[in-house]
Nucleic acid binder design. Structure first.
Length: 225
DNA sequence: TGCCAGGCCGGGT
DNA sequence: ACCCGGCATGGC
């Protein structure tokens, strides 16, 4: 049965990759930018996040020490286009405090540290404002840890195509499904998540049509949500 | 025009 | 252990 799941997940990936090609998600951006974006994107359109990041760049705020020094209310104003800007400013500050406080203000130091992925994950989850998805996004895309990111699109696609039952999706279960049945390769995890978002945006949004979905003819695709 | 976007927290049952 | 309201802007 494990082989079936592995083959299913692999086939899904191949179908998505054939349709959309490499996504190169969060390309050309520094790990710092990635980590900041992970918080700003919470329940928010990425387009809005780009505006906020552009404002941060203009202000010279894409750097941990600068973020540490700026007053929270100024930071809030800068990231306003991302929405929820008051809470996100607080959450960003919490992350900054973690990076600057005990980790020298550089993600590179963290990335090279001997800590296990699980240890880093627990630390991130201990920060107010960082939940499972934000933590895993930072781990995978900024700290180069082989951890699978689950988001609403992942859940929708998984539900739609029978990877999981009709029951409410548990983050951990879905995460484990991918991690336990795929080779634990960072690049694969990065691309897989990005491809799930790509197909999710086009075909698994509430209004989106299934027609033209590259997974349309995929096995077990008839079950809904 | 309304609905939605790559969550998470805190308080109430 | 769930369930819910709150948080906010900008694009289609």
């Amino acid at each position: 049965m494990q082989g079936d799941t592995s083959a299913l997940l692999r086939g899904l990936y191949d179908a998505l990759y054939a349709a959309y090609g490499p996504q190169g998600w969060w390309p050309g951006e520094t790990p710092t930018e990635v980590a900041i974006g992970a918080i700003l994107v919470q329940n928010t359109n990425w387009q809005n996040v780009e505006k906020a990041i552009a404002r941060l760049r203009e202000a010279g705020m894409l750097e941990w020490r600068a973020l540490d020094a700026v007053p929270a209310e100024d930071l809030a104003e800068l990231i306003r286009p991302a929405g929820y800007y008051q809470v996100k400013a607080r959450r960003l500050k919490n992350l900054v405090r973690w990076v600057c406080g005990e980790h020298g203000g550089e993600l590179e130091e963290l990335r090279r540290s001997a800590r296990s992925t699980d240890a880093l994950r627990e630390e991130l989850l201990g920060i107010n404002g960082i939940g499972p998805e934000t933590a895993d996004s930072i781990l995978l895309y900024a700290l180069e840890q082989a951890t699978f990111v689950v988001d609403t699109y992942t859940a929708r696609v998984a539900g739609r195509h029978g990877l999981i039952g009709p029951e409410a999706v548990d983050y951990g279960e879905l995460k484990a499904l991918f991690e336990d049945h795929l080779p634990r390769e960072i690049e694969l995890f990065k691309e897989y998540h990005a491809l799930l978002v790509a197909v999710g945006k086009r075909h698994c949004r509430p209004q989106a049509r299934c027609a033209g979905c590259p997974l349309e003819c995929f096995p077990r695709s008839m079950s809904v949500e």
